[in-house]
Amino acid sequence: MPFSLVSLMGGTVAVLVVAYLALIAVVMSYAALTIEFSQSLRNDEASVAALEGQYLAAVAHITALDYTAAGYAQPVLKTFVRAKSVTALR
């Protein structure tokens, strides 16, 4: 079969067109996925922030709690560590 410049160029153009279309597809998919993942991450972060808000509110609630009003009795005895104790003067 004789060499044909037209066939070669035609084939090259076809390959380039396919490559061009593939690149566009990849770039568009990449962009769409990046944005989708980013938004998903932000949504998760917002959910975590809501949980953190609940945690901090719970800490504030416990801190402000009046234990005696909640039915707990005041301790009647306070014990301190003696000097000879293993826990003293560490």
Binding site: F80, V81, A83, S85, T87, A88, L89, R90
Partner: peptide
């Protein structure tokens, strides 16, 4: 931790 204790 305590830094002093009741002396014996």
């Amino acid at each position: 931790p305590p830094d002093r204790g009741l002396s014996a």
